[in-house]
Amino acid sequence: MDELKTVKSSNLESDLAIAESYLLDNGIECVINKEYLSISTSRGGSARLQVMSGDYQRAIELLIEGGFVERASLD
């Protein structure tokens, strides 16, 4: 069963809006999860751009290609 996986996070939801649009334009369904956490996450940020696990690798490659994330930040 597919589950949601985070591909990018930010303290500001607006930082994720363009990346969300970019993924949608490239055929990747995604959502911005706006739940604000009371604890820090390993990637930081409270709003999360999430995709289905089956689309995770393609979404990451698209975000790198589009300049939304750096490959080095994923290691």
Rank of each mutant, 00 (worst) to 15 (best):
L12A: 04
D55P: 00
R58M: 13
G45N: 12
A17K: 09
L74A: 02
E13V: 11
T6K: 08
I28A: 06
D2S: 11
M1Q: 01
D25P: 00
S38E: 15
T41L: 05
A47L: 01
G44K: 06
T6R: 06
V51S: 00
I64D: 07
D55G: 01
L24G: 00
V51G: 02
L63K: 11
I32N: 06
E20I: 02
L63Y: 09
L4F: 09
M52I: 02
I64N: 01
S40G: 04
L24F: 00
D55W: 04
M52S: 09
G67Y: 10
M52V: 04
S14A: 07
I28K: 06
D15V: 12
A19V: 05
K34N: 15
M1A: 12
R43S: 13
Q50T: 10
V51R: 00
L63M: 14
S40V: 12
I39H: 09
N11V: 07
I60K: 03
I39M: 00
E35T: 08
G44H: 09
S38H: 09
Y22E: 10
E35Y: 13
A17Q: 01
G67L: 07
G45L: 13
Q57F: 04
S38W: 12
I39W: 06
L74G: 02
M52F: 07
S9G: 07
D15W: 13
I64M: 05
E13K: 12
D2Q: 14
D25K: 08
V7Q: 05
G45S: 12
S9Q: 14
L23I: 05
L12V: 01
K34E: 15
A72D: 10
L74F: 03
Y56E: 08
M52N: 08
S40E: 14
Q57A: 06
S40R: 10
Y36L: 14
Y36K: 10
K5S: 05
R43W: 08
I64Y: 11
F68S: 10
A47K: 07
N33W: 10
S9D: 08
L16W: 03
Y36P: 01
S21I: 13
C30A: 06
L63I: 09
V31F: 12
L62G: 00
V51P: 07
L63G: 04
T6A: 06
S9M: 09
S38Y: 13
A47M: 10
E65L: 14
Q57N: 15
L49A: 14
M52C: 00
I32S: 05
Y22W: 05
E61R: 08
Y56G: 02
E29V: 02
L12N: 03
K34P: 00
K34W: 03
F68G: 07
